[in-house]
């Protein structure tokens, strides 16, 4: 199954244009997913609308969501909501597979903070294939956090598509820890003038986990802005692909785009492939990207260990310090602590 193609291809020999999953069949005949908790500060329906994703992970997974989703959630943000809207999917032996279709529409001038969590109970293989669509009307402002805390045996597929209208803003925070294979496609269409998309992502891989992250931002509106910040750590045989595309379309005058990716390699068998692309069809823009990879600085490690921490504790501290800038964006102390606990657990 070919998945998660980049918007622009590069040489086939670089092994980054897409991924191919072999020995994997998508499950069929999936019962309803019942173990989900949704906070009561918003009313939801199941009346999601039809769609065709511009990118997404691929037709097979998209069609599965269209035809067989076992959880549909439609949210209309029609008033400012101070408390976070929490959607908490908890996988267990009775809820092994989730195929969800989430559609969120933020009305003009409205603000909300949405947290979507994926957790598990028994340590068995789960399957998740989700599509989240978010449309922000003029002057709306949405914080959305996607927290993937699945185990290392599961399959996690997620496609996100955002349409940002004039003066609207999306702060997106992605915590990607779970999945034997965790494949994410994120696309933002910044069509409105002054639209703004902040993307912060952390991933943490161990054992044989594989992450394929494909972030695509297309800037059409004038003075639009996108920032992609990705921090990750890989131990054991974990591997990640980071694909980031900032595409300044003609007419996106005075727009800015930045992408920054850093991968901390914690073993000599972990692997990091990155393709941070800048595509530019407009003169009057500023685009920057940087990417880096390497192991933990020995001096830093030595300094922390000289203060009485053992090697493992020192490594955990360094990883948490790296991730902290991104976790600060969560604006929810309880959730932040939960993630820090997960980092400690997964680095043990």
């Amino acid at each position: 199954m070919i998945l998660n193609e980049t918007p622009v291809r590069t040489s086939k020999n670089f092994n980054i244009n897409n991924i191919e999953l072999t020995d994997f069949n998508i499950p069929t005949n999936i019962p309803k997913f019942n173990n989900v908790t949704i906070s009561d500060n918003i009313s939801i329906t199941e009346n999601t609308t039809n769609f065709k994703l511009k990118y997404g992970l691929g037709d097979i997974l998209e069609n599965q969501v269209k035809s067989s989703s076992n959880k549909k959630i439609k949210i209309n943000i029609e008033k400012n909501i101070a408390e976070p809207i929490l959607i908490d999917f908890n996988f267990n032996k009775d809820n092994l597979s989730l195929i969800e279709d989430i559609e969120i529409c933020a009305s003009e001038n409205k603000k909300a903070n949405i947290i979507i969590k994926y957790r598990y109970k028994e340590d068995i293989e789960y399957y998740h294939n989700g599509i989240i669509r978010l449309n922000t009307k003029p002057n709306s402002n949405i914080n959305i956090s996607i927290i993937n805390l699945l185990n290392e045996q599961s399959y996690n597929f997620l496609s996100i598509e955002n349409i940002l209208e004039e003066n609207s803003k999306i702060n997106y925070c992605n915590v990607d820890f779970g999945g034997k294979n965790s494949i994410t496609n994120y696309y933002s269409n910044l069509k409105g003038n002054n639209s703004n998309n902040q993307i912060n992502c952390i991933y943490l891989g161990k054992q044989n986990q594989f992450f394929d992250l494909n972030f695509i931002g297309e800037l059409y509106g004038e003075k639009s802005n996108i920032d992609i910040e990705v921090q990750g750590a890989l131990k054991d045989n974990a591997k990640k692909h980071f694909k980031g595309t900032i595409d300044f379309k003609k007419g996106s005058k005075k727009s800015k785009g930045n992408e920054n990716e850093f991968c901390m390699l914690m073993s000599d068998t972990s692997k990091s492939i990155a393709l941070p692309m800048l595509l530019c069809g407009e003169e009057d823009v500023e685009g920057n990207h940087s990417s880096a990879a390497g192991k933990v600085d020995n001096k830093q490690l030595f300094y922390i260990m000289s203060r009485g921490f053992n090697y493992k504790e020192a490594m955990k501290l360094i990883v948490k310090a790296r991730f902290n800038n991104i976790l600060e964006n969560l604006r929810d102390e309880k959730l932040k602590n939960e993630i820090i606990y997960e980092i400690d657990k997964r680095l043990d």
Partner: peptide, 18 residues
């Protein structure tokens, strides 16, 4: 630009601007 890093004992950095 593609980077493919297969060892931890490395210092790799890439930066670009347009």
């Amino acid at each position: 630009p593609t980077s493919d890093i297969r060892t931890d004992e490395v210092e790799f950095s890439h930066e670009a601007k347009i």
